[in-house]
Structures are given as C-alpha cells and as structure tokens.
Design a binder for these strands. Structure first.
Lengths: 204, 204
DNA sequence: GTCGTAGGCGTACCTCGTACACCTAACGGA
DNA sequence: TCCGTTAGGTGTACGAGGTACGCCTACGAC
C-alpha cells in the first residue's frame, strides 16, 4: 500500500466550504478549491468522482453539525421547532450552500439523520404512516422554501426602490413590502414555522 | 425606423419553453434556443441582454397563465387553496422551470401578480400588515419547497432500492419511505397545503 | 434611389468540468 | 539496502457554454 492520502474528505469539504463562504456559489469551482488546498485541479479527482460529489461533501459538512438531541418531556411541536431551528441555524451560517442543499438532500448522511430525527418525533407524537409522510414533507418543504427565500435577497432588501414603482400595478404587494421591512428574517422564519406547526396534527 | 423585429418576446419565451420541456434545464442554452428559432446564437442578444433575462421570460410565460379570478363568497382559506393550486398546476406542467422560478420570482410580472392576488385575499380576511407578511411568506415558502421536492425526484421514486440499505441507520426514514410510495404527488401537495392553511390565522 | 438605423451573424475568447497520459513518492518484500 | 508496485499528484488539452466585437444587410423614411 504505497503513498498514503494526504487529504481527508473532511479537509476537502472544509476547503470547499471556505471557498463557498468567501466567494459564493459561482466562485466554487474545481480550480478554486484546488488552489485553496495548494494542489492541482486534477488532484481533487483522486478524492471525488466529480463536482457533484464535492458539493455533497460540503452539504454534509454543514448539515451534520446539527445537534439532534432533544430534552425529554418537551411537547412534540416544540421538539420539531427545536430541530428545525437548529438546522436552519447551521445552514444560515453558510447561506451559499442553500442551492446545493436542494440537489443533495437525499444523498447526504447529515440530512438523512436530521430527517430521521424529525420522523422519530412525529412517530412518537402518534402520527400514523400516512400522516407522517405528509407532515414530514410539509415541514421539509417549508424549511427549504424559507431558506431559499431568505437566501436570495429578501423582498425587503432591495425592495424599497423596486416597490415604489409597483404601488400602481400591485397595490397589496407594495403595501406588504413596506410592512415587511420591519420584520427580521428570524421573526419571519419563526412565524412561518409556527404556522406550519400549528397546522400539524396526528390525525389528518 | 428600419427593419422591424422579427420576433416578439413571447415567441422567444415560447421557443425557450419548448426547448426546456423537451430537453430539460441542462438542455436550455443560448445555442439550443437559437437553433429552435432558426436563428444564430448571437441574434438572441438583440432581444435579451443575457441568459438570465431569457429565463425570466420563460418563468413569466409559465406563471402568467395562472387564472387569478376567484368566485365571490368562498372562504378565504379556500381562496388561497385555489390560487395556490392553480399556480402549482401551471408550473407542474413544466417541471423544468422550477429551479428557474427560485431565481426569478421577484422579477417576473406573473409571479408578482399572483402574489398580489394572494395578499388581497389575506387582507380581505382581516390579516394585519405583519400577519400578512408572515402568512404570505410561509405560503410562498411551502409552495416553492413543495414544487422543488416534487421536481427533483420524490423520495418514493428511486427510493425503494436506496431505502433498503437505510433501514439500519435511519429506521424511521426507511419506514416512512415505504409508506410514501402509496401517496401520490397531488395528495402530498394538497395535504401539506392543508396543514399550512390550517395553521394560518388573522391574529397571529 | 439613397441613407441611416437596427437586425442578424461569424468569429473568437474566457471559464468550467474533466479525460488522459505521465511522473513520482512511498511502502512491502527480498 | 534496494527494488518493484501501486496509488497520489500534475500538465495538457478538449468540448461546452456565455457572450463581446465588428461586419454585413434589410428595410423604411425621405
């Protein structure tokens, strides 16, 4: 067995995440990651079969940092809120991974582990198989949608100027956009999450 | 004023959508759209400044087909369900646009018009400014997330084989994946939507 | 008919992912 | 101690895609 590997998958993922955080998704290229590691571009292909696999490593690095432990005795809605809030925090620290999350959520161990934890809570709360599927997907859809929305500039961001021109054509949108500026991303996420959680029920 | 344009933006969008439907997102290139129109690649740049603008046209073409009319006297939750269902139908007919929707939802007139209609319903239901923002974003987040989830292969799709190997590591996930196969995409979407709608309330 | 403007096009460049062939470092066995 | 094997590391090059640039040309107004 000649020549040990000089890189662990984790180190690769960390380098890629560093590039991603610094330069954003368009800046994440095989060349830029290789440079970050002081290697040649092609050397990366000794560790991953293609770019997609590299992305998966990054997603997993971010998501797998999520604490899945839950204090006993917490009501199930709050358990879900905790798990969802935690993964949002993890991902929120690296906004540029959000688009990657979409394509790799089925294949990353970290994501799967989180899903398993959520389903465990639902099962414990008495959700039957069918209700569990629906509830899980709904929660996941909200999470992904909300992350997405938060990621690519909130309406409130550059909204002001844009919205001014809209008050004629889209009056409700314009009015709401004004109100939106007083709401933080966290409040918005938690508010939306509360809506989804309130709608969940073991017998639906 | 010499030489009238031989193409309308709508025709451009239609051609791009045709390519998109036929070859999927990776098949949508400036070259392929130009070929579809029997033009040279660079001729497209007389109509759009860049690829992103072309994408916006496609998104708008798909979304703007949504009927925003509502029968009077319908309860607000059902009004929202109708509007949401309609836009899902529109987009569902062209699954490959889903990823584009994310990047262009702020800038497409069709999307804005739909948002305005939704906000009108919420306002009519007595939602205050703040509650309206939260409710709207939550609904939008669910919609986008659900479309996304439906788009890139459902867990149920290739899931069977994959899940077999997971029953050890992710027991709940494996069990739920099995149950998921008995649920259609439509039931899943409607079920999740019902959850969100149930959670909505004018005074939150 | 002529002229100016804008539509249409060919070429070329840059960036990316990655196939391929080569060099070389390191470890086990002799 | 030396050597062969094997996998790590690299340079080069190709094809795809977006698009800047400059030329040619069709068309409508006068």
């Amino acid at each position: 067995m000649p020549r040990p590997r000089s890189l662990t998958p984790a180190a690769l993922a960390a380098a890629a995440l560093a590039v991603l955080d610094r330069e954003g998704l368009p800046g994440l290229t095989m060349r830029s990651v290789a440079t970050e590691l002081h290697m040649s571009t092609m050397a990366l292909y000794r560790y991953v079969p293609d770019r997609s696999a590299l992305e998966r490593l990054v997603v997993d690095l971010v998501v797998s940092g999520t604490d899945l432990g839950l204090p006993a005795g917490l009501p199930w809605r709050e358990q879900l809120a905790v798990l969802t809030g935690r993964i949002r925090t993890q991902i929120g620290a690296h906004p540029a991974v959000v688009p990657l999350l979409l394509s790799h959520r089925h294949t990353s161990p970290g994501t799967l582990a989180w899903g398993d934890a959520v389903l465990a809570v639902l099962a414990g709360a008495g959700f039957g198989a069918r209700a569990r599927v629906i509830a899980f997907r709904a929660l996941l859809a909200y999470l992904l949608g909300a992350l997405q929305a938060g990621h690519l500039g909130p309406l409130s961001g550059s909204g002001t100027g844009v919205m001014a021109g809209l008050s004629g054509t889209y009056p409700h949108l314009a009015a709401t956009a004004r109100a939106a500026q007083a709401i933080t991303a966290g409040e918005e996420f938690d508010g939306g999450l509360a809506i989804v959680l309130r709608g969940l029920s073991p017998d639906s």
